[in-house]
Every structure is written in structure tokens, then in C-alpha cells.
Amino acid sequence: MRQGPAGEEAMVLEAYERFQFRRDGRVLTVAIAAPGAVNAVDARLHAELATLFTDLQHDSHSDLIILTGEGKAFCAGGDYAWFEEQIRNPKSFRAIAYEARRIVTSLLDLEKPIICRLNGPAAGLGATIALLCDIIIADERAVIGDPHVKVGLVAGDGGAIIWPQLIGFARAKEYLLTGDLLTASEAARIGLINHAVPAAELDSKVAEVAAKVLGNPRWAVRWTKTVANQPLKALAAQMMDSSLAHELLSNMAADRAEAVRAMREKRAPRLTGE
């Protein structure tokens, strides 16, 4: 999207099928609205995430983005039907590597401040997107984690980049290697997110922080963020190709297929080490 009349920019945003947009002055709320109860990532949502943040950068009618989820979840990881298609046809997994890279790099490139309103569970790619936002404010009942390993995948879509930067390597590797989920309150305590508040206070806390950010000069805010993100952008450039290559390899392992079957059948996986 290029800067232009409000009608043209609205048409670009209206083309998105997996997001809903609400404006309040210079604040644009972007809500993940995928089919199903947990806003799981399917092929369409993945493709739209790869262009969303570039389009938000060029939206001339907003200065701050609030990213949240419709319903009771933020984004609870990948859709199992999509996983099974990737297992049956590894070429389909290979084909989305460019999108996966762009999701991370375009989110880090976004100059506008972006607040994550973490209204419910965030897992896998959903957690990565939440944690790559500038400020994360959660409903204290929400949970967050990166359970890629539980479905037989390398945490290659950005989790291995951002978790260690927020909570250190020892804690990050424990959560990435176990796939365990944290409560929002625990995540705030260890510094993974900024705030965990009661559900009734979530919107007021988001509005409070947004007002503080918007009360400062626009370009001072945007370019301070730009400078602060430079180390993360360097890490993404250094790590994403290798991360995605290893994730692609893990998608072709026998234990990957068994892990997904076990999840769908709600049983313990029968792993072979292959």
C-alpha cells in the first residue's frame, strides 16, 4: 500500500480476509480474525501476515497500531489441517519460507509503535508476533509459549530469535525445548512481556500506554524504535535463513507426522527418534 487518499488505503485493508480493522483517531486496532476459536494460522493468514506490516507502515492515517485477536484467543499457533498438508506435501512448506521471513522482517521494519493487546492464548508463530511487538500488555488469564517442538518442528519462525533477547538464553532455551506455556502473570514477572492485568483492566491499560506514546513527537518515537530494533534486525538477518532451513528439515521427519497425529488424537506421541 502506498500513501494516498483514505479510500484507496481502506480498500487495501478491506482486502484482508483474516483481519479486522478499527480506527480511533490516529490509533488503528488490527484484530486477527481467523476461522475457528483460537485464530490458528492457516495458509491465508500466513500469507496476509507477510504483507500486513508493510501495509500498516504505509497507512498515512495512523500513528500507533494495537494488535489483538478477535474472540477469546490472540493466535494459538498453526492450524492442524494445514500442518497435515505440509507433511503430505513438503513442497508446500518450502513455498512459504519467503512469507515466514517477511513476517519477522516486516514487523521489525515497521516504524510505527505497535502495542500487543494479548487478550488470550498466544502460541508458536502467534507468540513470536506478540513478542516482536514493542509493548505487550496481557489479560492475566492469557497463556503464551512456543510449542513448536511439541508438533515436531524447529522454532524457526522467529521464536529462537526473540525469546533469548527478552529473558536470557537459559530461560529461553528451557521454554523453547520443552514447549511449555507460561501464564501472562509469570511472563510479566520474568520480563517476557510488559504487563499482565485483570481482564476488566486490559483496555484501559492499553489506552493508557498508547496515550503516553502518542503524547510524544511522532518522529522521535518512530526513529527511537528504529534504532532500538537494529540489533533485532541484525539477528533476524543472521538467523532466519538457517532457522527456516532447519524447520523445513524437521517437517520431513517421521516424528513430526506422529507428533501432529498425537495432538489431534489427544494422546501421547509414539516417537521413534526419526
Rank of each mutant, 00 (worst) to 15 (best):
A172Q: 00
V209P: 00
G179P: 09
L235M: 07
A228L: 14
P231A: 12
M252R: 13
Q230P: 01
R117Y: 11
V227N: 07
G4K: 02
N89D: 13
L182N: 09
R222N: 10
K72R: 11
K173D: 07
P121V: 06
G145L: 04
Y16D: 05
N194L: 12
R261Q: 14
D109V: 07
A200N: 02
D42M: 01
R101Q: 12
D180N: 06
N89R: 10
A268Y: 03
R222W: 15
L28Q: 02
E84K: 08
M252I: 09
E17M: 10
A211S: 13
L125V: 13
E84R: 09
G78T: 13
E70Q: 10
L28N: 01
A172E: 00
L249C: 05
T128P: 00
I135R: 03
N229S: 04
Q165W: 15
P231Q: 10
L182G: 09
I96N: 03
Q165L: 15
D109F: 05
Q20G: 07
M263S: 12
G159Q: 06
G120Y: 00
N251P: 10
P269Q: 09
A228V: 07
E186T: 11
Q57C: 10
F53G: 02
I96Y: 03
A245V: 05
P35R: 01
K266T: 03
T178P: 08
A245H: 03
A160W: 04
V154L: 10
A37V: 05
E14D: 14
E17K: 11
A95G: 04
I161F: 01
V221M: 07
A33P: 01
S62M: 01
A196C: 04
V206M: 07
R101W: 06
D59I: 05
D255T: 06
I144K: 00
L118I: 12
V38P: 01
K112Y: 01
V260N: 01
F74H: 02
H46N: 14
A47K: 03
E17T: 09
L166H: 04
H58S: 14
L108C: 11
I87D: 04
E208C: 06
F19W: 07
Y16C: 12
A210M: 07
